[in-house]
Nucleic acid binder design. Sequence first.
DNA 1: CGAACCATGTAAGAAGTTACATGATTAA
DNA 2: TTAATCATGTAACTTCTTACATGGTTCG
Lengths: 193, 193
Amino acid sequence: MSLRYALLALLNVEPMTGYDLYKVFESSVGHVWHAPDSQIYPELKRMESEGLLLGEDIPWGQRGKKRQYHVTKAGTEAFSAWMNTTMEYARVREPAHLRAAYMEWAEPEAAREQMRAHIKHHKGLLEQWREKVREIEEGSSPMLNRRLANTPSSEQEKTTAFKAFAYEGLISQAEAEVSWAKRGLKLIDRLNP
Amino acid sequence: MSLRYALLALLNVEPMTGYDLYKVFESSVGHVWHAPDSQIYPELKRMESEGLLLGEDIPWGQRGKKRQYHVTKAGTEAFSAWMNTTMEYARVREPAHLRAAYMEWAEPEAAREQMRAHIKHHKGLLEQWREKVREIEEGSSPMLNRRLANTPSSEQEKTTAFKAFAYEGLISQAEAEVSWAKRGLKLIDRLNP
DNA sequence: CGAACCATGTAAGAAGTTACATGATTAA
DNA sequence: TTAATCATGTAACTTCTTACATGGTTCG
């Protein structure tokens, strides 16, 4: 159900088309929440039918058109209700750790390769997230700036601080993963002399 | 697709029934991978039909019976093939961080409550995982001991070390989450004087 | 003119959740 | 004898992924 609220969060900044949202999911929010276009378009329709969004066809080029959605009053209320609800936590499901627990079944070189892939994956995330924090703090994030333009100045500090805070959490997570996998490499070496 | 391999990992230790597996998912492996009974029973049937498992009805009490599964040669091969494959990483989807990024929409008290719930949740996980590591290191984990009984002594160190290693990774993760949420509480206080 | 991008979907299926349903056994 | 536990499922639904399908626009 989070996809819906991610969409509301983004459309609260400014009206957008499904494709715009898809692009944003590929970049900014995509680092906290990912969704493919095949999930976005139907969800937008559903949200419109439920009165959370209002879609409007706007012309695009000679014959083309695109549908721009903006959040209705009901949509804003739904979003802020969700934000004031405490969420449920999903049960743990960690493929990388499941595999690690049984790593004696893997060839040592395959086990090393797993750990290297883990490091590479999380270093990649780290880089993107650190870049995001930099943008937020420097005021060079286009999405955030459009957001701040519609925000009373008394609220701007909050908006910025919470965004940075969210990314910092992801950064700590990824750092923990990298250092775990590095310990894994050492462990594999120690156990396979 | 990991459920299948989690089941193979467990059945490699000893033959079990669906209910046994369900219990194990509620306790030991459940902390790395969770699955409800409604997912386990059908998957076991599917795996039997694919030749990875062999099921045998054994009597239980006067009229009752239960079906015990053991891993076939094909099952062992499938598991070790999986263990030697590098896995794909799923895209990021972090509900807690998505919410944190938009926390200016929540009442300060609701935001605090979220952070407190985050701390409570991850402290709970931490406790369970630390207990697991203790059991593994003390040799008091029943599951692991049954496993070690069928393992050549040259391999026992690996088996134990990798299990502990997996849980240690989860512990670092959870510690990072707790300290992030504590920073969140301070941030909320600072922004709402 | 062709490539890259903008734009919007459908369809099939895998994976996971929640609820419902049933019956046997065991231990207090 | 009744409550807890053992035992095995089905059904409906949500969420997400992967693949397929189509057509317009813009820019070099």
